[in-house]
Design a protein around this nucleic acid. Structure first.
Lengths: 209, 209
DNA sequence: CCATCTATCTTGTCATCGTCAAGATGCAGG
DNA sequence: CCTGCATCTTGACGATGACAAGATAGATGG
């Protein structure tokens, strides 16, 4: 009887860390960053109030673990988007931008947490690795644009990455902060107005016909 | 003796709200957002622990008041930058961008707070007004670029504002989060590479010589 | 099979915090 | 003078992060 009940409270949870991470991610999006507490998280998975501290150390450690998972998922989303339109460089970049924005909109609080300097332990190796992979993925996504514009100098390529990243990152932040006044914006008309970074980057250079 | 001592503790502070705001702004940048507490703030100006609640209600109210002051200063910084180079539209936009980045870098925690959806009371009229004025100022700064590109449609102008705002806002966020790998970047070389949004916006259109 | 070791989890405790309620103070207006 | 009211204080309660010490159970080695 008692042996087969998987829901019975056991002294050793067996996979508590993953359970805490999953519950933490859910709690983060549901109740907000300020509601993410070690004790509430412990209660939500049915363990004692000090159990999470054993796995994450402090509250900052918990946030760091959640952000690490976030970066891993983020990298996967970006990679899949990059594999979508490998031939057309413009569609390729637009797909990457949409993936970036989609991730931010789907989990805005996690996204903000991932990019907050003061709330995470950036000396954590796991966080450094997962965020570094996402950064590398983003760098790869800029390669077609760099090739199109004939940028071979590493500094110039870096500058292009910064420009692209800044634009999509800023739009993501403004979007999840409800700062973008208009509706989804008639994409076709706006691209015609040339108010799209991808359009500007892939526009024929001056002096061409 | 006692009558002339302006530092003597008085039951009525006289200008407690402003003192709390000033101390709060200083505490925010010095100790971080998570260290901003009503009690610590009260202690720092030498009043009882519940005094701030009378002026700000809750902790969210305090943050809202600080962000309101932040937006007012932000608007002033942007306005001064816009008045700097009124003739050359490219230099005009570059000056605005530098002002935007400078404000974020000078008070990164306040900047983040100002643009965080969940930490402020966006129903507060003072916050709405000060942030609205900053938004309007930003809109004005985009006017020369819109004129240069011949955008008269309001939707197209809005799209241009969103593009400019996203780019500088994203760069500000990445800068204060220490995500921009390189040094201050040799501006001249990078503009030559065309990796500057202002350069792209003010580049001669395709087909011109 | 049993003893020990160690990671895992619990219980207890403390200082700090946000928030509310009730009271004290002193300025301002009648 | 004195009454009203905004301002500030005192006191209290529940929740939280962090730490210390103990209990538990699976793993390891004899």
């Amino acid at each position: 009887m008692t042996g087969g009940d998987s829901t019975a409270p056991r002294y050793h949870h067996g996979d508590l860390r993953n359970a805490l991470v999953d519950a933490g991610l859910a709690m983060l999006e549901r109740d907000g960053l300020s509601a993410l507490s070690l004790r509430a998280l412990a209660a939500s998975v049915g363990v004692s109030h000090a159990a999470p501290a054993h796995h994450f150390g402090t509250l900052e450690g918990l946030r760091t673990a959640l952000a690490t998972v976030g970066f891993t998922r983020f990298e996967a989303v970006l990679r899949e988007a990059g594999e979508a339109a490998p031939t057309d460089p413009l569609a390729h970049m637009r797909a990457a931008e949409q993936a970036y924005l989609g991730f931010a909109r789907a989990q805005p609080i996690l996204f903000r947490l991932m990019f907050s300097a003061g709330l995470l332990d950036w000396t954590d190796v796991a966080l450094q690795q997962s965020s570094g992979e996402a950064r590398r993925q983003l760098s790869d996504l800029c390669s077609p644009a760099a090739a199109y514009r004939g940028l071979d100098d590493p500094a110039a390529r870096l500058a292009l990455e910064h420009l692209v990243w800044s634009t999509v990152h800023g739009r993501a932040h403004l979007a999840i902060d409800d700062k973008l006044d208009a509706a989804p914006e008639d994409a076709r008309a706006l691209q015609a107005a040339g108010c799209d970074l991808a359009a500007l980057l892939f526009a024929p250079p001056a002096g061409t016909r």
